[in-house]
Simulated assay, not measured.
Amino acid sequence: MTIAPSEFTCTLYAVADHIATITLNRPERRNALNPRAYAEIEWAFKAASADPDVRCVVVTGADPAFCSGEDVKEMMTGEGGGQQARVAQAPVRYQPTPAAMAALECEKPVIAAVNGSAVGWGMELALYADIRIASEKAKFAELFIKRGLICDVGGLLRLPAIVGPAKAAELLFTGDVIEADEALRIGLVTEVCAHEALMDRAMILARRIAANSPLALRYMKQGLAKTSYGDPREVGGWAIEIIYRLFQTEDHREGVRSFLEKREPVFVGR
């Protein structure tokens, strides 16, 4: 899908003072992701990476959420396909989610300004950032286990490096929701601030970063990626293959049904 910012319907993209701001903009769906939103996120990160005027990127969501993950209703009804349809139609050579790779391979420092719930792929998106700051209203959860699925590259590679393997395992295995203060305590975010101050705080930090040498920033980010994280393409390809298998299971169907029916899932292991 080839699109330009003027055609965006799910995302806002703007550049000012060497800072690119990417805002997920489906507030009526709590910024849940459909295929269009995934495509726009991919384009925005690639554009920011390629733009010599951009030195830092801030990603956030239109209130009241940062990103509530996959749009489950669209996924189940088939409207636009959703991640499930995209994976189900994937070629034999499984590849990482394009939007994830665009975020991970962005050459500019990325700050996630988490203004509300960041769950499922929304938490993945926050994890793709180099730095996360949160409003007091932020919540985080890797909910994939509740849907009979596994997470993407963020949870598998970056979360253990950020909070440690044991805490990452707890969050991934339980699907527990944690509040902003707990996210700060475990090092998932570097700052928690008043909700109305979040974007000001993010922009202050972004301007401090953008004031530095663009070349040095790029290589500093590359160096951190080499020393802190594994190969996202290898792990991402494996994850998509496993997600494809799990999409075919009764447990996944039960996970989605239980979400839509607002009840706890009852899994059977098949």
Rank of each mutant, 00 (worst) to 15 (best):
Y229S: 13
L260K: 02
F66S: 08
I22M: 05
D200H: 04
R147V: 07
L172W: 01
D181V: 00
S213V: 07
W121M: 10
T97E: 14
E170G: 00
C193N: 07
E250N: 08
K137E: 11
M101Q: 06
V58T: 04
V177Q: 05
P91W: 01
V59G: 09
G78K: 10
E196N: 14
Q84H: 12
S135G: 15
E105N: 11
R245V: 05
Q222S: 13
R93M: 14
E264K: 06
N25I: 03
Q248S: 11
C10A: 13
A216Q: 09
D17I: 00
K262D: 14
C67V: 13
A166G: 00
A210S: 14
Q95H: 12
V92G: 01
A16E: 13
T249Q: 04
G78W: 13
W238T: 00
E40I: 06
G236E: 10
P165M: 03
K167H: 07
H18C: 00
D63K: 08
D251Y: 02
K139C: 12
I209C: 11
I3A: 07
T190M: 12
H195T: 15
L215F: 07
E142S: 09
I204R: 14
V189H: 05
K167M: 12
R147A: 11
A48T: 02
D63P: 15
Q95I: 14
R218K: 13
S117F: 02
G122M: 07
V114G: 05
T60N: 10
V72G: 09
Y94M: 15
G236M: 10
A210G: 15
K46P: 00
S213Y: 04
Q95R: 14
R207K: 14
G80Y: 03
G230T: 07
I41K: 12
V58Y: 06
A210H: 09
K221R: 15
G81S: 10
K137L: 13
Q89F: 08
E79A: 13
L24H: 03
L171Y: 04
C10R: 15
K226I: 12
T249D: 00
A100C: 13
E40Y: 03
E191F: 01
W43P: 03
G78N: 09
A16C: 13
A197D: 15
A32M: 12
Y94A: 15
L172N: 01
G255M: 01
E179I: 01
I22P: 04
A90G: 13
R29S: 08
K139L: 06
A14H: 07
C193D: 10
